[in-house]
């Protein structure tokens, strides 16, 4: 185990995905805040800090909430500079956002190399009307090792997913 990596106090992560998949509400839930029912778009990048317990030690994540991609906007690679891991976010009620997440991962791999990352499929609370079925989920899991279904509305699944990513980034089992 790399002790320098474990001793590092702070790490940068980027949260990215298509527009309106719920990135900001997921971060709000993760940082102990609530759910904002009114959609408010992120312009550029919004940075917050979240304290996490990793392997019994308190660490800090510097979370970059990056504006969602659309036909009219592509993420500036500058935001990703120096990040230690990333969170891809998709919306289970819009299967196109899962395809988008896979496309983003390919681009990020070219730009950043292989880094710890997870895919969160948001809106688990609306699972009866999901576009993504069991086969779709299985296909995603074949391509991305860590796929979590989460709900920013209820908060379910978010902390487990972020804990797993933190452990991986700090090299803690």
């Amino acid at each position: 185990m790399d002790s320098a990596m474990q001793n590092q106090r702070r790490k940068k992560i980027c949260v990215i995905g298509a527009s309106a998949v719920g990135k900001t509400n997921i971060i709000s839930r993760f940082s102990g805040g609530g759910f904002n029912n009114r959609y408010q778009t992120t312009l550029g990048a919004h940075i917050t800090r979240v304290t996490v317990a990793v392997g019994g030690r308190l660490k800090e994540l510097v979370v970059w909430d990056i504006k969602g991609e659309s036909d009219f906007y592509r993420i500036s690679p500058a935001y990703l500079y120096g990040c230690d891991g990333y969170v891809l976010v998709a919306d289970g009620t819009r299967s196109t956002t899962c395809d988008h997440a896979l496309g983003l991962r390919s681009r990020l791999r070219e730009y950043l190399g292989t880094l710890p990352h997870i895919l969160l499929i948001n809106k688990d609370d609306l699972s009866p009307v999901w576009d993504v079925d069991k086969e779709g989920l299985a296909m995603l899991r074949r391509q991305i090792q860590s796929v979590y279904t989460v709900s920013a509305l209820s908060g379910s699944g978010i902390h487990d997913a972020m804990d797993a990513l933190s452990r991986e980034m700090w090299g803690v089992k």
Partner: peptide, 27 residues
């Protein structure tokens, strides 16, 4: 200034990050 985590030392001569908001500060 924690948002500089990962950005220093810069391995290029310059980097421009457009429209960044730190917590509730101005963009």
């Amino acid at each position: 200034v924690p948002f500089l985590e990962g950005l220093l030392p810069l391995r290029q001569s310059s980097l421009i990050l457009p429209c960044v908001q730190i917590d509730t500060g101005r963009r």
